[in-house]
Design a protein around this nucleic acid. Structure first.
Length: 225
DNA sequence: ACTGCCGGGCA
DNA sequence: TGCCCGGCAGT
């Protein structure tokens, strides 16, 4: 069995046979620290993963971290590589294999945030709550999925609505048919674009300055970022 | 309440 | 197609 190290940088995917090699690659190529090879705070070992040949190649899909298909989200949320954040500070001492199970689903409530001191632009902040955002350097994609399927067993809605007000708001009248939320009308909405849009910028009164998409109440195409 | 925009209607 | 809007969802 051979152990290799694969660069996880956006779509680099470079594979080297030594940890030192991949660290050097990452420092030089991606982090722009080509000159001083002894300057290493261990940050770069976040950007590669250890892969084992002749084993189940878990790290295969990691290099091409493409948005696999955001619409296949219904039951199983997409999985992201969760690097080991509890790494040691010492550069040379590589303690653990960063083995990540492809279908390991971290508890949906725990928000995983990558620890880095340089949170400016080089580090991919990966969050795994209900929606994940991934921002390696500039280009960003984000994908979200619905809350886990709730299998409803038992009494539908009991009048014990422990909430001020009282009056039962949600009636499921009849019996429980609930198989999946009635999507299809709206389905998976886009994560809602950031930044200013024509309407916000020009205002309702200058509607003729909007981009056509905005005028037609479509997704704005002027302020794509 | 406001804003972005999907889905759909109308010419 | 081009244009517009109802209505929903996120803020």
């Amino acid at each position: 069995m051979k152990v290799m190290f694969k660069c996880l940088w956006k779509n680099c995917g470079k594979v080297l046979s030594t940890a030192a090699g991949i660290q050097k690659h990452i420092r030089g190529v991606h982090l722009g620290r080509a000159g001083d090879s002894d300057y290493s705070d261990g940050e770069e070992d976040f950007y590669y993963t250890e892969i084992k040949l002749n084993t189940d190649a878990v790290a295969d899909g990691l290099g091409s971290l493409a948005p696999a298909s955001p619409s296949q989200s219904l039951a199983s949320p997409p999985t992201f590589p969760i690097p080991d954040s509890s790494r040691t500070e010492s550069p040379g001492a590589k303690t653990e294999t960063k083995l990540m199970t492809p279908l390991s689903r971290s508890a949906p409530t725990t928000l995983y945030l990558v620890h880095t001191d340089h949170a400016y632009q080089a580090t991919p902040p990966v969050t795994i709550p209900g929606s994940a955002k991934f921002t390696p350097n500039g280009s960003s994609f984000s994908v979200s999925w619905q809350s886990p399927p709730v299998t409803f067993t038992g009494t539908p809605v009991s009048p014990t609505h422990h909430h001020h007000g009282g009056a039962g708001e949600q009636r499921q009248h009849g019996h429980v048919v609930l198989s999946s939320p009635p999507r299809g009308t709206v389905g998976l909405r886009k994560p809602r674009g950031e930044g200013k849009k024509c309407r916000k910028v020009y205002g309702m009164e200058n509607r003729d300055l909007w981009c056509t998409a905005c005028r037609w109440k479509k997704a704005c195409q002027r302020f794509l970022d």
